[in-house]
Design a protein around this nucleic acid. Structure first.
Length: 430
DNA sequence: TCTGGGGTCCTAGGACCC
DNA sequence: TCTGGGGTCCTAGGACCC
């Protein structure tokens, strides 16, 4: 029963925009963008907006004229909504196959060779996925099938860009010459794992299309570009090098950083922002069941304002013994911030990075730690997390976070949390 | 006026060990 | 004139992903 692997890559079309449309159906067919934090850049575009030539990551202020002209509707990021919709997306996919890797908020790899016999064809399985996800969750997806992850990604790309596939592309169903024709039509930069830099270097060497890269000798690719691209090359040739990661590996670092709604000059506000980020990072840390022994704090000014003095500094702080206690981490971070802060600059962004993450119970305790201290700390943090889980984020936080939030980011265009707050439930008129 | 956030992996070089 | 071999750990920087 050792069938060769068949990977499906299921990807939601314009995920954030599609989530907004589920609860605001009048947006269907309209040009819509979703903006990054602080309403900075366009990070999701409806097909109507893409057709206007708007590129991923375009700053919103550069788009406003075009938006007025074409009636583009813009939304602030509503991560609570997108996260919840993502969970629903995954749970529907699990009804097709138990072998799933959640690759990103809007994409899953699925191993399907063990369940394909339930369908008339691989393509039929793909259409069944599309139909069920649209009906149950309201999200439009494309599906690509291939013998490796990289090829499934490529198939998904074809399904997205070419209407004749009707949202599902199965590379197995093609003849070899047919596959090669498609590979010769797509630029090498579209391959998963080939970014701008590699794409430029490859093109300069005459490797311009997906087919060109597939036809390279893997050994030569390794010598010139390293082991990562060699794997990509082998995957394009149909040898599976990347396996399905069903259990998400524990994070190796936890980062929380934000740009401010408006620049900050005062220490007090920086402290509040950093304390808030630490609280958020510490909560993630506890959810993963880890503690940390190193914490990095950074602050910087707005790099786009070349007319203003710039400051970009960070400090790594070692803790006397590993901790997951928001209060201890906050103390350490604020002490570090005190050393970084210089008046006279307009700070635009700050952040916290937890690096050395150690599983709970494996930590090396300090020689002079008091007995029982850790148990008390764990009890307090557990209550804190329970209250916030029940009554909403930030119901309880350290006093260092302040209450004014003058530094908070802009999100004036955010839609309601339709699926996660009683007060935001959509109302259906009878 | 206005430009996101959060990750991973690989490599090279230096410090240090026996 | 002439100075080994094998290894780990850490950091910084570069590349990639969504």
């Amino acid at each position: 029963m050792n069938r060769p692997p068949v990977f499906a890559l299921v990807d939601v079309n314009n995920f954030y925009v599609s989530c907004e449309r589920v609860f605001q159906p009048h947006l269907e067919g309209q040009p819509v963008v979703v903006l990054s934090n602080n309403d900075g850049c366009a990070v999701a575009r409806s097909s109507e907006v893409k057709a206007l030539g708007v590129k991923m990551g375009t700053p919103w202020f550069k788009l406003e004229d075009l938006a007025k002209q074409h009636g583009i509707q813009a939304f602030s990021s509503n991560y609570t909504l997108y996260g919840d919709m993502s969970n629903r997306f995954v749970s529907v996919l699990r009804s097709f196959s138990p072998d799933i890797e959640i690759y990103s908020i809007d994409e899953c790899f699925v191993r399907v060779e063990s369940v394909l016999s339930l369908y008339a064809s691989t393509g039929a399985m793909g259409q069944a996925m599309r139909h069920k996800l649209k009906q149950w969750v309201g999200l439009p997806v494309c599906v690509g099938f291939g013998p490796t992850k990289t090829l499934a990604k490529f198939a998904n790309h074809l399904a997205k860009k070419n209407a004749e596939f009707e949202g599902v592309c199965d590379l197995h169903a093609m003849s070899r010459p047919e596959r090669e024709v498609w590979m010769s039509k797509v630029a090498v930069g579209e391959v998963w794992g080939v970014g701008r830099r590699l794409s430029d270097r490859l093109t300069a060497l005459g490797v311009q299309t997906v087919l060109d890269l597939r036809n390279c000798a893997p050994r030569a690719v390794r010598a010139e570009f390293g082991v990562v691209l060699e794997r990509t090359c082998r995957e394009l040739r149909g040898f599976s090098c990347l396996s399905l990661e069903e259990v998400a590996p524990a994070k190796k670092q936890i980062m929380v950083s934000r740009s401010f709604g408006s620049p900050i000059t005062r220490m007090k506000e920086l402290e509040e922002a950093v304390a808030s980020y630490v609280g958020c990072a510490a909560e993630k840390l506890r959810r993963q069941g880890c503690c940390t022994s190193t914490l990095l704090v950074f602050i910087h000014t707005n790099p786009f304002r070349e007319d203003l003095p710039q400051r970009n500094v960070s400090l790594s702080i070692g803790l006397p013994s590993p901790s997951d206690d928001s209060r201890e981490l906050t103390r350490a971070a604020l002490a570090g911030l005190g050393k970084l802060y210089e008046p006279g600059y307009a700070y635009k962004k700050a952040g916290v990075l937890l690096t050395t993450l150690i599983p709970q119970g494996m930590e090396q305790r300090g020689l002079f730690d008091e007995q029982g201290q850790s148990a008390r700390s764990a009890a307090v943090m557990s209550v804190l997390d329970k209250i916030n889980a029940r009554f909403g984020k930030d119901s309880v936080k350290t006093a260092a976070c302040g209450t004014e939030g003058a530094w908070a980011m802009n999100a004036s265009r955010r839609s309601p949390r339709f699926t996660t707050r009683w007060s935001d439930l959509p109302v259906v008129q009878a």
